[in-house]
Amino acid sequence: MEAQAVHVVWDFRVVIDLFLGGVGVGLFLLATYFSFTAKEKHWTVIKTGYILSPVFVGAGVLSLMTELGKPLRMFSTYIHFNPTSITSWGGYIQTLFILAGFLIICYLFKTGIDSFNNNIFKSIQITGLLLAVGTGIYHGLLLASLGRPLWMNGLIPVLFFLSSIIAGASLLIVLRSVSSKVFHSAEDLAIAEVAATSRSAKPDQPLTYLFTILLVLQVALMIVWRVTLQATGLEAVGNYQLMMEHYGSIWWIAAIGLGLIVPLAISIYASIRKVSFSMGSAVILMVSTLIGSYAFKHIIVYAGQLNVPNPFM
């Protein structure tokens, strides 16, 4: 099967926005999770995750603005808000999320770990959490709303969201491995010492188990997505076949192999052995997962724009 024409409206700059924004969302969600469960033990990781999150999302938005050709055109979405447009909602959600992220950074640098006892900070944190979820879901809904056969499946927003969390988690795993080298303030050292005295004898590996669960869920949903394409319609199946013809090798090697199989094998091994990720395995996880996440979003965005030929023409 050959495409009649390939008219790419969204190029790699949109993919970069989806990718970097997704990593930022994943960092924020995981940092918030650990701030609720073990903020002393993971203080350095939490702080680093919160600092990097709005930076990644902001970099993604800048990439999107360059794709628009006229960057100032983006501001028209704020002035001429359309409540029925997912793009209009996305512009506000991402902007508010970045602002919430920078407010959190200001609090953390001003009052440190004591910020988590401040009610105003907690309100900003919860608001940021909701905006992070909104941003993650928006990335997938934006595709689903455009009516392209490959994007219309309801699992696309979920797969994009999970891919974002996994990418952010892989980065946090490396940050956790090198946390002693990231910050050297007296506060960080004091908090680390308190956490060490209260740590159990078992290896501290909440990220290991969480990462494994997320990967298993992503693999399961990938399979469900492929199976349910049949129910979406013949055009969706044809679009998937075109995707395999144009991007099949990259899909299996990068998106599936590096993005899912390699990190899943490493994380399952660590979970069974009940050990934390070593520095070497953490770096492999991060590199393979980030490559896989980008490849997945790149292929879905580009393949979704392939025109399926009409069998009656």
Rank of each mutant, 00 (worst) to 15 (best):
Thr197His: 15
Ser281Asn: 09
Thr197Arg: 11
Ala144Ser: 12
Pro206His: 05
Glu40Cys: 08
Leu18Phe: 01
Ser276Tyr: 12
His139Ile: 08
Leu306Thr: 01
Ile173Arg: 01
Ser170Leu: 05
Phe75Cys: 05
Ile300Met: 05
Tyr294Glu: 04
Tyr33Ile: 04
Ala195Gly: 07
Ile268Pro: 10
Ile291Asp: 02
Glu187Pro: 11
Met74Arg: 05
Leu29Ala: 00
Leu214Gln: 02
Val237Lys: 02
Val174Arg: 02
Pro203Phe: 04
Ile51Phe: 04
Ile223Asn: 04
Thr232Lys: 13
Lys181Leu: 12
Lys41Glu: 09
Leu172Phe: 14
Ser35Asp: 07
Ile166Asn: 02
Pro206Ala: 07
Phe28Ala: 03
Pro157Asp: 01
Leu72Pro: 09
Leu264Arg: 05
Thr32Gly: 10
Tyr247Cys: 03
Leu207Val: 14
Ile120Thr: 13
Ser293Leu: 02
Ala144Gln: 12
Gly101Leu: 09
Ala100Arg: 08
Ala295Ile: 09
Ile120Trp: 13
Trp225Asn: 03
Thr44Ser: 14
Ser76Arg: 11
Leu162Ile: 11
Val158Phe: 10
Thr232Trp: 11
Phe19Met: 00
Gly259Phe: 02
Leu264Ala: 05
Gln230Asn: 12
Phe161Thr: 03
Gly248Arg: 05
His42Pro: 15
His246Phe: 12
Leu129Ser: 08
Ser63Phe: 09
Tyr138Ala: 00
Ile173Glu: 04
Ser63His: 05
Gln4Met: 15
Val301Ala: 01
Gly280Lys: 01
Ala303Ile: 06
Gly259Cys: 02
Leu108Asp: 07
Val301Asn: 03
Leu155Lys: 00
Val287Gln: 02
Ala236Ile: 12
Val227Arg: 09
Lys47Gly: 05
Ile165His: 07
Pro206Asp: 07
Gly90Asp: 02
Gly147His: 04
Val15Asp: 01
Arg273Tyr: 13
Ile250Cys: 13
Ile213Gly: 06
Arg199Pro: 12
Val219Asp: 08
Ser180Asp: 11
Tyr138Gly: 02
Gly69Arg: 03
Gly60Arg: 00
Lys181Val: 15
Val25Gly: 00
Ile284Ser: 03
Met279Thr: 12
Met222His: 15
His298Gln: 12
Ser249Cys: 15
Tyr33Arg: 01
Leu143Gly: 13
Phe12Val: 11
Ile93His: 01
Gly233Lys: 07
Trp252Arg: 08
Tyr33Val: 05
Leu18Gln: 00
Met65Ala: 10
Ala236Thr: 10
Val227Lys: 13
Leu64Ile: 11
Leu264Tyr: 03
Ala201Gly: 15
Leu155Met: 06
Glu235Thr: 15
